[in-house]
Design a protein around this nucleic acid. Structure first.
Length: 462
RNA sequence: GGCCGGGUGGUAGAGUGGUUAUGCAGAGGACUGCAAAUCCUUGUACGUCGGUUCGAUUCCGAUCCCGGCCUCCA
């Protein structure tokens, strides 16, 4: 295994050196559950799922922690706006998030901690920071004193003078310095709060990840991931908190996925171009979305377009076509990690080079389609199936992929069969005009007919 | 202003100091009653200007654009 990962902290691709090869530890910043997940939220889900799979393929034991942030002012705001309870909102959105992850073919993380379940740990960590002189109390708030932490800015490569100069926000009166950030803030009903040595209140934004990662992984762990936007201030502040608290580095490798745009524009409510994943579910197979999200390198920006959806769908059609002749039991067999194509593994080990991995899958398809020896062909098909499933694709059988209906108003199989019977008769009678008309009719209903030596076959156009 | 990325053929998108990425779209052909799928053939790319080199898209410098972050954001 020669896994190379780009480390945001050092800004270079490095050989991955686990602290303990017998137990790999990864933490990824999960969602704040205040709004249904959009397509951009799907990217880190899929990217770090792939990394999780890759790590599991090589190391015996991988712990993957992805948190749910269920205490946050955006949630409070939402509750205020809608009149709904906070619990109601966080439960619903967490459910959406889980549906989204399943839809995208992402494995469940090993641990999924929630902020509401870790308030004592958070309070304890804040207390330690106060005791060590890195944090101070003021007007019911606890703040982290950024200038006390010498390495502040190491991840995002910012220096403190510049941060001050760039501060655009009015400095809150309880802050000693403009760059200080909140660890704990006072709460009044109906805003959620907890009793603490610093008064009744709730945690600030960053502390939860420091507390939860420490609890579930330890003071230092191998990989910390998230979206590129989290580099500053979120991860910078996590480092400041954790390193100051534990006198140890928080994580060895910091990985960040690039952002996603929609048809060249930043997703925003005001533009009305936010693509909610729930809305895609009845129109697209989740594998198509997963393929699209992985079709450029994870650190590059990705533009989500109708063309991307179309080509992703076409790519999967091609893969499925190549292995459609495999016997059904192959689809239910567990993934054989030894049967994963080595060139795909090599590509993925190079900092998750998914475009190169996809290219290799297509090469396998081509080898299958040109194979003369039946035994070799089946061997290649098995490799392709294994490899694709290892990456989270070809999870449905070819039959489901080609003939499963995404929406309930799609034409039924028995109707299709009626048309096929009619067409079969027409063809026997050499009435090709009638046969072609039936084919056109079915096409307009989203069904494509293939005439093969063994008879008519059909599949949905998707 | 500060800090980061990026500019590759019609398009999406990897990569490399000299040798085909790959997909999609296009053209021609094979197969087919016609199609679909598949196969064969085909396009000929690396922002601009310098430098290093026998040779640069690939290294160095300059320059012009584009995007992100510095405030909530995956």
């Amino acid at each position: 295994m020669n896994l190379q990962l780009y480390n945001t902290r050092t800004r270079i691709k490095e050989a991955f050196l686990p602290m303990d090869p017998a137990h790999i530890q990864m933490y990824v910043c999960g969602p704040t559950v205040y709004a249904p997940p959009h397509i951009g939220n799907g990217r880190p889900v899929v990217v770090f799922d792939l990394l999780f799979r890759l790590l599991q393929a090589v190391y015996p034991n991988v712990t993957y922690v992805r948190n749910i942030t269920d205490v946050d002012d955006k949630i409070n705001q939402r509750a205020l706006e809608t009149g709904r309870s906070i619990q109601d909102i966080t439960t619903e959105i967490t459910g959406y998030f889980h549906e989204t992850c399943a839809y995208l073919g992402a494995l469940s993380p090993t641990v999924e901690p929630r902020v509401t379940g870790h308030i004592p740990e958070i309070i304890q960590m804040i207390q330690t920071l106060i005791d060590k002189g890195f944090a101070y109390e003021n007007e019911g708030h606890v703040l982290y004193s950024v200038h006390k932490f010498a390495d502040y800015g190491q991840l995002s490569r910012k220096n403190q003078d510049e941060l001050l100069a760039g501060a655009r926000v009015e400095v809150a009166p309880y802050k000693e310095n403009a760059e200080d950030f909140v660890l704990w803030k006072p709460s009044t009903a109906p805003t959620p709060g907890w009793e603490s040595p610093f008064g009744y209140g709730r945690p600030g934004w960053h502390i939860e990840c420091s507390a939860m990662s420490a609890k579930h992984l330890g003071e230092t762990f191998d990989i910390h991931g998230g979206g590129i936007d989290l580099v500053f201030p979120h991860h910078e502040n996590e480092i400041a908190q954790s390193a100051a608290c534990h006198d140890a580095p928080m994580a060895n490798v910091w990985m960040h996925n690039g952002h996603l745009s929609v048809s060249g524009q930043k997703m925003s409510k005001s533009l009305g171009n936010v693509i909610v994943i729930q809305d895609l579910m009845h129109a697209l197979n989740g594998q198509v979305v997963r393929w699209g999200l992985l079709s450029s390198h994870y650190r590059q920006p990705l533009d989500w377009t109708p063309e991307l959806v179309q080509t992703s769908n076409a790519a999967l059609n091609r893969l499925y076509t190549a292995i459609e002749s495999l016997s059904d039991e192959k689809w239910t067999m567990p993934i054989d990690l030894k049967g994963v194509d080595t060139e795909v593994l090599t590509a993925l080990q190079d900092d998750l080079n998914t475009p190169a991995a996809f290219a290799r899958l297509h090469e396998l398809v081509h080898s299958i389609n040109t194979a003369i020896d039946e035994q070799i062909k089946v061997q290649l098909q098995t490799t392709l199936l294994n490899t694709a499933r290892f990456m989270g694709f070809l999870t449905d059988s070819a039959n489901e992929w080609f003939r499963g209906a995404l929406s309930s108003d799609a034409i039924s199989e028995s109707e299709i069969q009626d048309y096929l019977d009619q067409r079969h008769s027409a063809k026997l009678a050499k009435d090709f005009k009638a046969a072609d008309e039936i084919r056109d009719t079915l096409k307009s209903k989203g069904v494509i007919i293939k005439d093969t030596p063994s008879g008519q076959e059909w599949q949905r156009a998707n």
